[in-house]
């Protein structure tokens, strides 16, 4: 297989585009297509999705005949911890309040760095949580609780 894919970046982007295009086209079937004169809700997305799938197929095929660099050096820690940190923030902000959610986000995401040290992270947690509470809640008055209902408020 590796011998066949000579341009992995192009190959996999083509695969991604084809998959996305086909998925959109699949779902678009449920919407009324209509006619050119009276376009239904499905017309524009269906046409676009098929164009995307075709472009993806073209890019994939072309990748078999061109040379390209391989995909190297995935930032696996960052790839996992950055989105997870955001998810934790979103899940805790309403119930736990800004101090908790910012603290957790900082802790989790800081762990993605190779320079991670628990002491620095702890200081950052405190500083950023206090800063956000001050700026976003006290100064700008965003409707986010300081300490959320989970703690009996």
């Amino acid at each position: 297989m590796q011998g066949l894919i000579r341009n992995p970046k192009d190959f996999w982007s083509g695969v991604m585009f084809t998959a996305v295009g086909l998925a959109f086209a699949w779902i678009s079937q449920d919407y009324q297509f209509g006619s050119a004169r009276r376009m239904g809700a499905g017309f524009f997305p269906m046409v676009l999705a098929l164009i995307l799938a075709a472009l993806g197929a073209f890019i994939t095929l072309r990748a078999l005949f061109t040379e390209g660099e391989g995909i190297r050096g995935l930032a696996l820690k960052g790839l996992l911890l950055v989105p997870i940190g955001c998810l934790i923030f979103a899940a805790t902000v309403r119930g736990g309040g800004i101090l908790l959610s910012v603290g957790l986000l900082v802790l989790v995401s800081a762990a993605a760095s190779v320079h991670f040290k628990l002491r620095t992270a702890a200081i950052m947690m405190v500083v950023l949580a206090a800063f956000c509470a001050l700026v976003f809640i006290i100064a700008l008055g965003l409707p986010i609780p300081m300490v959320g209902p989970w703690f009996g408020n």
């Binding site: 910012v102 760095s113 986010i144």
Partner: peptide, 20 residues
Amino acid sequence: IPYHVLFPGILVFCCIGVYS
């Protein structure tokens, strides 16, 4: 400011900005 101190802050602002 080193990046490993900076980026959690960036993420915090992104999250609060989008949430708000």
